[in-house]
Amino acid sequence: MTFQDYFPIWDKLDPRQQNQITSRLVFRTVQKGAVLHSGSLDCTGLLLVKTGQLRAYILSDEGREITIYRLFDRDLCLFSAACILRSIQFEVTIEAEKETALWIIPVEAYQSVMAESAPVANYTSELMASRFSEVMWLMEQIMWKSLDKRLAAFLLEETAIEGTRQLKLTHETIANHLGSHREVMTRMLRYFQSEGMVKLSRGMVEILDAAKLEGLRDGL
């Protein structure tokens, strides 16, 4: 599969515009833990995931992380091209959660095509709106949902993503996703274990009762 198969509006570009992008396209494979973008001053380019998984997160003033969205196969990240969004100061860090193969579309090439292509401009606006919807949803969760509900939702989401109930997650990793402290996560996970919802072992959380987690998540 080539870049053309992954870029959703490739057929809306004329040959010259297509060449503007492909002639400057960069393909990379990064290892788990690699940081691809860091902060609003870093203008990496647009990231289009071929295979793998990326995480976009922000840091609090105290240095705590919180995940704002994930990127999977065929997902395109705009926040890694911060200089396109000059009116938005969004301090996002993007790192690889798994080994990831991706294309980097240089900002200059994308901006040039977007300036003359209504389909690209519309697609960019829709993608940006979608990402901000995810951020607003996250803010609602933080403001209105208790941490135990958010933890239950996270564990269920991870189960769906990984396709297994045996999750290779440290307490610190979970805390980083949810914007909490490792010690708080440890206490909460031990409570979940005492209630028979999970089983804890070193670097592992095994889901024992998904239905009970779903009930907690949904407030039932």
Rank of each mutant, 00 (worst) to 15 (best):
A82Q: 09
C77M: 12
I84V: 11
F90Q: 04
E116G: 09
E91R: 03
A109Y: 05
L76Y: 03
L102M: 14
E116N: 08
A115M: 13
T100E: 00
T100P: 01
K98W: 03
L85N: 08
S112R: 10
A96C: 12
A96I: 04
A81G: 13
L78W: 12
Q111D: 13
F90L: 13
M114D: 05
A96L: 05
I94P: 01
I94F: 11
K98A: 11
S87G: 10
E108V: 13
I94E: 03
W103T: 00
W103N: 03
A118C: 11
V113P: 00
E108H: 11
K98R: 11
T100K: 01
E91M: 04
A115G: 04
A81W: 05
S80A: 15
A115V: 07
A115H: 10
L76V: 09
S80Y: 07
S112W: 06
I94C: 06
F90P: 00
S117F: 12
D75F: 00
R86G: 00
Q111K: 15
E97G: 03
A81E: 03
F90Y: 11
C83G: 07
L78H: 11
S117I: 09
A118G: 10
M114G: 04
P106D: 07
S87H: 12
E91A: 07
D75L: 03
A96E: 03
E108Q: 12
W103G: 01
A82L: 07
Q111L: 14
